[in-house]
């Protein structure tokens, strides 16, 4: 069985303060702090590519553990904002920049906010099926490339960042293993988050309605299927869309606030990086044994999983 050995991340130093946008968008401090929960949104440097964010996340991983790029046999990037126009795939670019070995699978996964959970299933299953031992799952989806600076619906929310998850077999590094996944897609409502015009467009109300109704249903089904109750789960790591949606989901599921962390304030909604950024904060806490992850957004799609300490 393949599981998570370690995680690391990179958040660019550049940012835009939402407090500087109060007059432009007619919002106040209370809306920024209590509803968005986002003081500022991170912005990658001009000239950086998503692959550069991945490389920096990997350098952070090397600071934490003995991650040997020479042994990596699977390298995956989850993004919908790839380097260039997507050819070659960003995972191959990262492979080249890290000078990984030739005997290494590299492919991209094109999903947004539900991406990390789905990618975790895809990559762990792919590695297990093919006897691979050292996988790197990157997330890097810098929405700053496609955001319209005058669009209140998006420019206050999305920040840039990247994460990397080191995946290894149980007994050879894995500390956490996924025990169950559930997936969903509602393509007929995909227009609610789109990039047809070259700029991100989001129908906030449609996304809210979808998230507030679909996600609790899936999480309840996940718990029931795994014979879990809320009190047996140590943390619910929900996609960090906004404080408002996190609070709404916690209330609809009856979750104690202390079990539903959020880390939006300093960088915003980092799309597929939001869940691994939370995960990075909790995996080394010895008191935590069981986690529920749930990502939801572009597609519209949603995916949830249970992780247990190996």
């Amino acid at each position: 069985m393949i599981g998570i050995a370690q995680l690391a991340s990179y958040i660019p130093e550049g940012f835009e303060s939402n407090f500087d946008k109060k007059t432009r968008f007619g919002i106040d401090d209370a809306f920024i702090r209590d509803k968005l929960g986002i003081d500022r949104v991170s912005r990658m440097a001009a000239g950086d590519e998503p692959s550069d964010l991945c490389v920096r996340a990997f350098r952070a991983l090397q600071q934490k553990c003995q991650a040997d790029i020479g042994k990596v046999d699977c390298l995956v990037v989850c993004t919908q904002n790839p380097d260039g126009n997507g050819i070659p795939h960003t995972s191959a670019v990262v492979h080249g920049k890290l000078a990984a070995q030739d005997a290494c699978a590299a492919f991209d996964i094109g999903l947004g906010c539900s991406g990390y959970v789905s990618a975790l299933s895809i990559v762990t299953a792919f590695m297990a099926a093919n006897g691979l031992k050292n996988g790197l799952l990157f997330t890097a989806d810098p929405y700053s490339r496609i955001i319209d600076p005058s669009d209140k619906n998006t420019v206050l929310l999305f920040g840039d960042g990247a994460t990397v998850t080191l995946l290894q077999p149980v007994g050879a590094g894995a500390q956490w293993v996924p025990t169950k996944f559930l997936f969903g897609t509602r393509g007929a409502q995909g227009d609610a988050i789109n990039n047809r015009s070259g700029q991100l467009q989001m129908n906030g109300r449609a996304v809210f309605n979808f998230s507030a109704t679909i996600v609790p249903t899936q999480i309840r089904a996940l718990l029931e299927g795994e014979n879990l109750t809320v009190d047996k789960v140590d943390r619910f790591l929900l996609h960090q869309g906004s404080k408002f949606i996190i609070d709404t989901l916690a209330a609809r599921l009856g979750l104690p606030p202390e079990k539903v962390p959020n880390n939006l304030a300093a960088h915003g909604n980092t799309v597929s990086s939001s869940i691994p950024l939370l995960l990075e904060q909790v995996v080394s806490d010895a008191g935590i044994q069981t986690l529920v992850l749930s990502g939801f957004g572009v597609g519209l799609s949603w995916a949830s999983a249970v992780l247990k300490r190996a």
Binding site: F31, K35, G204, R205, F208, N209, A212, S242, F244, T248
Partner: peptide, 13 residues
């Protein structure tokens, strides 16, 4: 505000 309103109209529906 607009977020409260989204929550309200979901509750109405």
């Amino acid at each position: 505000d607009s977020l409260d309103a989204a929550s309200l109209f979901l509750a109405v529906m």
